[in-house]
Simulated scan of single mutants.
Amino acid sequence: MGQSEEHYFYVLCCKDDTFYGGYTTDLNRRLTEHNTGKGAKYTRLSKRRPATIIHHEVFETKSEAMKAEYAFKQLSRKQKEYYLENFSKK
């Protein structure tokens, strides 16, 4: 692994129409963890599952990805919606 490992900041849209931002090195594994109730405390609630990845960004370092996650979590709902509409790759 070493330096070739990719670091992701991702955003989930939960069943209750809320957003969850997170960090991982494996998007598929992390989504499975969230949807089986083994992910973050936020997504353990059944009202939030299933969740879907609606946005992700790739970074070279864990630090960069976690800074992006932190910045996203500081935004208001309206700011998050704007970010996702204007910066999403999908």
Rank of each mutant, 00 (worst) to 15 (best):
Y20T: 02
T61V: 05
E33N: 05
S63T: 13
F9T: 06
K41L: 10
K89H: 15
L31D: 01
S76I: 11
D16F: 10
F59K: 06
A65C: 14
Y70T: 10
L45I: 06
S46G: 08
Y10Q: 01
S88T: 13
T36L: 07
I53R: 00
I53V: 15
F72S: 02
K89D: 15
R48V: 11
L31F: 08
I53P: 02
N28K: 09
Y42C: 04
N35D: 11
K67I: 12
T52A: 13
Q79K: 11
Y83W: 15
M66R: 07
K47D: 13
K89V: 07
Y23T: 01
E6N: 10
R44D: 12
K80A: 08
F19M: 11
S76Y: 08
K73N: 14
P50D: 07
R77C: 01
G22E: 11
Y83M: 10
T36D: 13
Y8E: 02
A65Y: 04
H34N: 04
E64H: 15
R29L: 07
A68M: 09
D16A: 09
L31M: 08
G22H: 04
G21R: 03
Q74G: 09
E85W: 03
H34A: 02
K89N: 11
P50K: 05
A68S: 14
G22M: 12
Y70W: 09
Y70I: 08
G2A: 12
Y20S: 03
G2F: 12
A40H: 15
N35Q: 09
R48N: 14
D26Q: 10
A65W: 04
H56E: 07
D26V: 02
R49E: 08
T52W: 07
T32S: 09
M1A: 14
S76A: 14
Q74F: 07
C14N: 13
E5K: 14
C14R: 10
E6G: 01
I53L: 04
L45A: 12
I54F: 08
K67V: 07
